[in-house]
Amino acid sequence: MSDTKKIRIFMTGVGGQGTLTATTLLAKTVLSQGLPVTSGEIHGMAQRGGVVESTVLIGCKSPKIGHGEADILLGFEPMETMRALPYLKEGGLVVSSIEFMPPLSVAMGTQDCPTIDDIKKAVSSCTDKAYFMSSQTIGLEAGAVQSGNIAMLAALCAAGELPFGPEALEATIKANLPEKIQAVNLKALELGVKALDV
């Protein structure tokens, strides 16, 4: 499989957002396409509100991503998107939520929270390929706030940077998620694809 295009995806969010579920679903979708995939967590299961970072690498041997190596940055929380920018290679793709889930330090007032404009400026200094979406709002519209991560995965699949589209993710959801949460997540997938066209 040496002819597989190498794609390094860096995912970041905060505990309780479903970052690791999204990582698993994306890795299973890659596998379902017959592509070699490696995934890993950089920061273990963070407590609710703590930072969670994970990687999905297509056609790569190591699950690690160094600074300037990520082809894609998927940020489920905007401050974490900004914090993870050093990992993005120049001209890489960013898909980020614009809805904050501030870490404890910000909630307690010991650290300032950047504005969405600050974050967009920081992203635009690294790449002009960026999509921003209200993932929690989309999740709520679909029926569960956590399904916002599926909406973001769907947007990523629809962005044209992966060797498959949202249909592959849809098949993975149907094959791997319990039936009782499938409808919500399939609705989130549909809304995520639409959000990309806005």
Rank of each mutant, 00 (worst) to 15 (best):
C157A: 11
E170D: 14
A159E: 10
E190I: 04
I150K: 01
A183Y: 10
L162C: 08
A168C: 11
A155V: 06
K180D: 14
L156A: 02
G143Y: 09
E179T: 15
L189R: 01
N176M: 11
A159R: 11
A171S: 14
Q146E: 14
A144P: 04
L162F: 00
A168E: 01
E141P: 05
I181E: 09
N185H: 02
L169A: 01
Q182R: 12
V184H: 13
I150G: 00
E167D: 14
E190A: 07
N185W: 01
T172H: 04
L156W: 06
A159P: 04
E141K: 07
A142I: 02
E167F: 07
E179R: 13
E167R: 12
E179C: 10
F164D: 00
N176H: 15
F164T: 04
K187N: 11
A188E: 00
M152W: 07
M152G: 06
N176D: 15
V145D: 10
A159Q: 09
L153V: 12
E190P: 11
N185L: 02
N149H: 06
L189F: 03
A154L: 08
A151K: 04
P166D: 01
Q146I: 13
A142W: 00
A183D: 14
C157K: 02
A158C: 03
V184K: 07
T172V: 11
L191Q: 04
E190V: 02
S147Y: 05
F164L: 13
L191S: 02
A175D: 15
E141L: 08
L169T: 01
I150R: 00
C157Y: 07
L156Y: 05
A142V: 06
E190M: 07
A155N: 04
A159F: 09
E161M: 12
A188M: 09
C157E: 08
P166Q: 09
E141H: 10
G160M: 14
G143A: 11
N176S: 13
G160C: 08
S147C: 09
A168S: 14
N176K: 10
G165D: 08
A168F: 04
E141M: 05
G192F: 00
E170M: 09
